[in-house]
Design a protein around this nucleic acid. Structure first.
Length: 549
RNA sequence: GCGCCAGUAGCUCAGCUGGAUAGAGCAAAGCACUUCUAAUGCUUAGGUCGGGGGUUCGAAUCCCUCCUGGCGUACCA
């Protein structure tokens, strides 16, 4: 990374005892940032401002001394080093450095912006919608954000496992089975009512139809609800997976609650473990866990009066299992409506002496669908939601995925359908893909120069707009790191829009394929580098980069 | 009541581990196609960063407090 490279150079200069009198300063505090105002150079640092007090020096004077030292040190690196008002040191990087770093972009290709394996293992769980219906809008943002975070983490050097927790056990599943059975009976003209709390959506009619085509109706009459539950789960998981694949989301692991928690001794083992550290007590005929002693505000029931374990107990067992599987970081992407579970789950992991710092959460705020200025997130037919399938029948995957990651997950998000239709000015993904397509179009027209990457003179790229594009390209790895550390794919989305803007502006002003072959070659190299960044960046967001539009 | 998130331009939102004159897109007004894709570009206008205190060289950013909106506060999952 260019920034690291320069920071290192500065650190080396400052800590050189023979030349520098600042070698006692804590150089780990040296941070370069990119100033808003281009007059302040390519990078700047507040290092002198931070350290002035400790040295009992005037910050401006300190900055001056440091800058003089650096300016003399490496004339190849800096075009100039200046000092501004309170004590900022501003660096203008020489064009040669930019050209040198640009040359590496195409060598790295699809790995440009990525980081080598760091040996850390991350488990990231997301979507995990109950298999009692199709995926709907509420799951869409979770899916898009979760998958993009997983891709970004992987790209930045982590070994990532994505996991979908299948809630295929318990009351809801019984109701699902009974509801399906009821639908089958209705098809057979046998009077049957869906349970009060059951699943009344019409999709179960389709499942019933399918079931009747596969199994003789006489045989079905004698089946209990479990048979129907199993059939419905299998069907619905398959449908969910289909929708996810349409979004280009593939899970590494599907974790069945029934198989892994209830049909094993995991639950009893976990319970015994809690008991072994005196973490359980009986009250009101129920069993409670002492989470209040481990960082939560309350204790919680883990076994109900009827002897069944609570959902929370199952979740403790599941997360304990996650810890046992040896991950360095366990990430849950949750809807914001589950935020209250965080503190009790963390407290439980503390109690089990798992390192709860390894357990992290990304909370996703709600999305509202807006159509004709009104909230249409829920359809008029009560109980049915806008499904992902419905969304994808009207909007393509690229648009949907990009929109879902283009805002901070902390923000509520209004998705205005009318503003996102094809050709709309309010459709940012087209803007980015169009940039990428324009580049392709030029690259395809290059019959004259017959551009080859090896023989190109990048020092011909001297226009301001060219240098600005190079700077932005070289900033890509920093963006990846930032998006990865903060698990915020929207930072990448914003970056790609900014990069597109730089390109479009450059494109309108500058002819790429000109008579001077050398110059064309250098510009084609720049464009190909841009294309690399677009492709790499969009891929991380699960968005394609079409060859033409 | 308590907890989490949000409140920044007319609208939708970035910026929040403190930095220099607060940004982008859309909408508004005006301009630019005999050119490698005008799904574009270039101008202009638009702000008491919810209110009030505090911390310091410096606050949209940190602390306190109040107001508004969303979500949550089960022996449901």
């Amino acid at each position: 990374m260019l920034k690291d490279f320069i920071e290192d150079k500065i650190r080396i200069s400052l800590s050189d005892k023979s030349k520098s009198k600042f070698f006692e300063l804590d150089i780990s505090k040296l941070v370069l940032s990119i100033p808003n105002n281009p007059d302040h150079g390519d990078f700047s640092t507040n290092f002198a401002l931070i350290n002035a007090k400790a040295l009992k020096l005037n910050p401006f004077e300190l900055a001056r001394e440091i800058s003089t030292l650096l300016d003399n040190e490496d004339s190849d690196l800096f075009e100039r080093v200046t000092v501004e008002k309170p004590g900022f040191i501003n660096f203008k990087i020489s064009k040669k450095i930019y050209h040198d770093f640009l040359a590496e972009v195409l060598i790295k290709g699809e790995n440009f912006g990525s980081f080598p394996l760091n040996g850390k293992k991350i488990l990231i769980e997301f979507v995990s919608a109950n298999p009692t219906g199709l995926l709907h809008l509420g799951h869409l943002r979770n899916a898009a954000v979760g998958d993009s975070i997983a891709r970004i983490l992987k790209f930045s050097g982590y070994s990532v496992t994505t996991e979908y927790y299948i809630n295929d056990y318990g009351n809801q599943i019984r109701l699902l089975g009974e509801s399906l059975k009821s639908r089958v009976m209705q098809k057979l003209k046998i009077e049957s009512k869906i349970p009060e709390e059951g699943y009344k959506g019409e999709y179960l009619l389709d499942v019933a139809e399918l079931l009747l085509s596969e199994v003789k109706s006489d045989d079905l009459l004698s089946k209990d609800y479990e048979f129907f539950s199993n059939y419905a789960i299998k069907y619905l998981i398959n449908e969910i997976d289909k929708d996810l694949k349409d979004l280009d989301i593939n899970f590494d692991s599907w974790y069945s609650e029934r198989d892994r928690i209830h049909n094993t001794d995991l639950l009893s083992k976990t319970r015994n473990l809690i008991k072994s550290v005196q973490g359980l007590y009986e009250k009101d005929d129920a069993q409670w866990i002492k989470t209040s002693e481990y960082g939560d505000n309350d204790d919680w029931v883990v076994k109900k009066r009827d002897d069944a374990s609570t959902y929370f107990m199952n979740d403790i067992a599941y997360h304990h299992d996650k810890f046992q599987r040896g991950f360095d970081n366990i990430v849950n992407i949750w809807g914001a409506d589950h935020h209250s579970h965080i503190s009790r789950l963390k407290a439980s992991m503390n109690l089990l002496s798992n390192d709860s710092h390894k357990l992290n959460f990304v909370l996703i705020q709600f999305v509202r669908l807006i159509k004709d200025g009104r909230d249409v997130s829920m359809s008029k037919r009560s109980g049915t939601y806008t499904t992902i399938r419905d969304m994808l029948s009207e909007f393509n995957k690229d648009l949907v995925r990009f929109m879902m990651v283009s805002r901070s997950s902390d923000s509520h998000f209004d998705f205005d359908l009318d503003k996102c239709r094809e050709g709309s000015d309010d459709n940012p993904i087209f803007y980015i893909q169009y940039a990428s397509a324009r580049i392709n179009s030029i690259l395809n027209k290059d019959e004259v120069v017959k551009f080859t990457e090896s023989q190109v003179d990048l020092s011909l790229l001297i226009e301001d707009k060219e240098i600005n594009i190079i700077k932005k390209i070289l900033n890509f790895p920093d963006i990846i790191l930032d998006a990865s550390n903060s698990m915020s794919p929207h930072k990448l989305a914003f970056y790609l829009q900014e990069l597109s803007a730089l390109f479009h502006s450059y494109y309108r002003e500058t002819k790429i394929l000109v008579d001077e072959r050398e110059l064309s070659g250098a510009r084609l190299f720049l464009l190909k580098s841009l294309k690399t960044v677009f492709t790499n960046g969009l891929t991380l967001l699960g968005v394609s980069s079409p060859e033409r539009m």
